[in-house]
């Protein structure tokens, strides 16, 4: 609040109300609903639901299918996060270094940000297509028969490739801006202190980039968990049972296709806790970041 704040009583209420109403109706109500229905089991014939306590949760904990999906989600998240961060870091460091063509490179490396995940999935599905996909042809040339949508591992591979491709630009934009916010004089001081470019990067640049990188870590985990829905939905080609899916996708299939409202809600709640933990971590880190500057 500002020192010289206005003191009209009604105006701020009127200004806040639309936002608050929308949040109440479309955020708090459904979120509450999710928690509430995670303790109920829907009657399969649609005649109401019964309170079952923590049954939905114990069912999840025992489900080998859920464990498999969770396992893939972890694998997928780790790979997508590190690959896209790693590639983006390499590109950002180089883009920060070159003088000639720097702007062109920046544009060429960031525009994919605007491509919707399902569109990326569509491009991927066709590039990896059984009949017409050039990447499949490439693999066939080396004697491997890539079967997207049929072979679990092949589909997982393609999903990761597409998800990484789609996420490189965001990481690139933030890492480049992080690099550019390191004071020129600090880099020059390092230039005088250390001859080796590689050592300078790991001793000075990287630690100064660490807050950005950590923040991106969280962003990437969130991306891999939630925003890849579109990629996955397109690439499983309507056949999620035999293909790799993530936890969010399972919430969707169980809830909307399997009509297991209680189970799906319990899964939602598990994800909520996960996101909460991530956010808390992020804020912890934000506090530490302040020390640097």
């Amino acid at each position: 609040m500002k020192r010289a704040a206005f003191s009209q009583p009604l105006m701020p209420v009127a200004l806040l109300l639309p936002q608050l109403i929308i949040i109440a109706v479309f955020f708090y109500w459904p979120a509450g609903e999710a928690i509430y229905s995670s303790f109920f089991l829907q009657d399969p014939f649609g005649f109401g639901s019964n309170y079952v306590g923590a049954d939905n949760y114990t069912r999840l904990a025992k489900s080998s299918e859920y464990a498999k999906v969770a396992g893939f989600t972890l694998f997928f998240t780790v790979l997508v996060t590190f690959l896209s961060l790693g590639i983006a870091l390499l590109l950002a460091v180089k883009a920060d270094k070159v003088i000639r063509g720097a702007k062109t490179y920046r544009t060429l490396l960031m525009w994919v940000y605007a491509v919707a995940p399902p569109v990326a999935g569509f491009l991927g599905a066709l590039l990896f297509d059984q009949n017409i996909g050039p990447i499949t042809d490439l693999f066939a040339y080396f004697g491997y028969n890539l079967q997207i949508g049929l072979n679990y591992n092949d589909t997982a591979f393609a999903m990761i490739v597409v998800s990484v491709w789609k996420q490189i630009p965001v990481n690139f934009i933030f890492l480049l801006s992080g690099l550019q916010s390191i004071p020129v004089a600090v880099r020059e001081a390092a230039l005088i202190d250390n001859k080796s470019g590689t050592r300078r990067f790991w001793d000075i640049t990287f630690p100064l980039l660490a807050p950005t990188a950590f923040f991106l870590l969280i962003i990437n985990i969130t991306y891999a968990l939630f925003d890849t829905f579109g990629v996955i939905d397109i690439m499983v080609k309507g056949n999620p049972a035999s293909n790799p899916i993530t936890l969010v996708y399972k919430v969707y299939t169980d809830g909307f296709r399997g009509s297991d409202l209680g189970g799906s809600s319990a899964q939602s709640v598990v994800l909520m806790v996960l996101v909460l933990a991530l956010t808390v971590m992020q804020f912890r880190m934000l506090e530490r970041r302040i020390h640097y500057t």
Partner: peptide, 27 residues
Amino acid sequence: PAERDIAMVFQNYALYPHMSVAKNMAY
């Protein structure tokens, strides 16, 4: 620059923000 046997004091000091005073001097 690192091979010229020079040391420089910058206008904005250019200290390494993630290192302690001792480490800044030792680097």
